[in-house]
Simulated assay, not measured.
Amino acid sequence: MSSTSDNQWATYIRKSTEEQDDQHQRQDIKDWFDYKDIPVADVDFYSEAGSGASSNRDEFNDLLNAIENGEYSDVVVWEVSRIARKGELAQRFFDSCEDAGVTIHVTNGSVRKIEADGTGRLVADIIASVAAEERRQLIRRTESGQRRAREQGKWLGQTPVGFVRSDEGYLKPNLNPDYDSGETGFFDVADALERVESGESYNKTAENTPNLTRQTLSKIHQDDDRRGWYIEGEAEDDRVQDALTEVDV
């Protein structure tokens, strides 16, 4: 197959987080262009990491502006959910393409083309709605799981320095730190705080404490509640207080 010479092509690739791999999207899209005999060098690539529910995506907004300015005739995406996982954002994208006479090509999914005249739009709308509902269900399940974990006294989020999380999800003092893996022991922090209390500087204390930065040490020392975890063995948070029963401060 040969491409139309006056077509102006763009593609949008999105992964949800920096840690994810988008190579499968890129390869599918490249294979599609190869099949259509469209040189990849003639295609403008818009690629980023970000939530499909967020409108604060620089590459997405740049592409949308370019579409609305009439810079493209065709846009290629891996699947409809890559455009957006929020209904109103997907609809805005579809509307902009329709108004600008842009055809959307989908390399993987139930609908493979959304014409500027609206052909394929109904199916795409349904797919976008399903993606939005899946996102809402995931959020509800996540919130429910977090609520149950909190009720059970489990620790969520980043583990405080000097602590680890047990296999069951509970906070516990790190009494055997793996320094090579970047860990800091509970008693390392306690000792550092005592040295600061004795007049040693944050910089010198941090330099002599494994994997503890001056900024972290300063933040702990200036927080009355957190300082008390390590020096007095007392905490306002019941989850921390339960963990501190393992140590004799």
Rank of each mutant, 00 (worst) to 15 (best):
T103H: 07
F93G: 05
S54G: 08
D58Y: 10
Q91H: 09
D95E: 14
L89W: 08
A53I: 04
A84N: 02
F163E: 05
R57F: 11
S144R: 15
I114H: 08
E98V: 04
I139N: 13
E151Q: 14
Q146R: 15
S51H: 07
G162C: 09
I104Q: 07
L64F: 12
A90R: 07
A84G: 07
F94T: 05
D99T: 10
I114G: 07
V75W: 07
A116M: 00
R92P: 01
R112L: 02
Q152R: 15
W78Q: 11
E151W: 00
C97Y: 06
A53Y: 04
Q137K: 10
T103E: 14
I83P: 09
G157Y: 13
A131D: 14
A131W: 11
V123D: 10
K113R: 15
R92H: 13
D62M: 08
S73Y: 04
E71W: 01
V123R: 13
R85N: 12
S51L: 14
D58T: 14
E68S: 13
R85K: 11
R82L: 08
F94Y: 15
V80R: 12
E151P: 00
C97M: 15
E143F: 00
E79G: 04
R121W: 08
T103S: 10
V111M: 03
K86S: 15
N108M: 02
G118L: 12
R85V: 09
R135Y: 14
S144M: 08
S144W: 11
Q146A: 02
G157T: 11
L63S: 04
S55T: 13
A90P: 08
P160N: 10
A53L: 08
W155L: 05
G52S: 12
I126W: 07
S144E: 14
D74V: 07
G87D: 10
T103C: 04
V106M: 03
F60L: 12
N69G: 09
D62H: 11
T119C: 01
S73H: 13
Q146G: 04
L156M: 13
G109D: 09
S110L: 06
K113S: 11
R92L: 14
